[in-house]
Amino acid sequence: MRARAFVIASAASAAVLLTGWQLGTAGTDPAATTASNGGTSKTTGGTDASSGSSSGTTDATDAAATGSTTQQAGSGVADGTYPGTTVGTRFGDVQVQVTISGGAITDVTPLQLTDHDGRSVSISNRAAPILRDEVLQSQSASVSFVSGATYTSDAYVQSLQAALDAAGF
């Protein structure tokens, strides 16, 4: 369930970003439209972001539908990279860069991101599920310390750290 919620939330986020991109490329000249839409679309984006959690699935479906339509209708868009509009999210302001190739979106990368205090942030550092055999393991002889929830001085005796200390690793 949690994984599904994560996927829906991610889809909702993508929908917000895509919506922002569509607003930014509604005109014929991508660069000029992006510049002029910068102010107004931010308000729209903020509304989307706040409703995203309650109706995330609907938003994602709608965005996917309109997104593909735009793709077909937008065959006149020249190949290249276009900055999207800045969208307000609960993490702060988000702006993505969209790469168009052969009339289709081939890449979406985050540009400048700032949090509510104006600090640069990165949504690309988001944690994602990983299998146990995908994380790095090491032989105990190469490990010097074990990081875990704090053990009491009494529990230390049975801890892995006590064994490493005794061995001098």
Partner: peptide, 25 residues
Amino acid sequence: LRAGGSPWIVGIADPGDRGAMVASL
């Protein structure tokens, strides 16, 4: 670095088995 010139490696305790590690870093 650790003696011998290799980086310090820290194991992450397995919360389900305090005698085991889930990962290292």
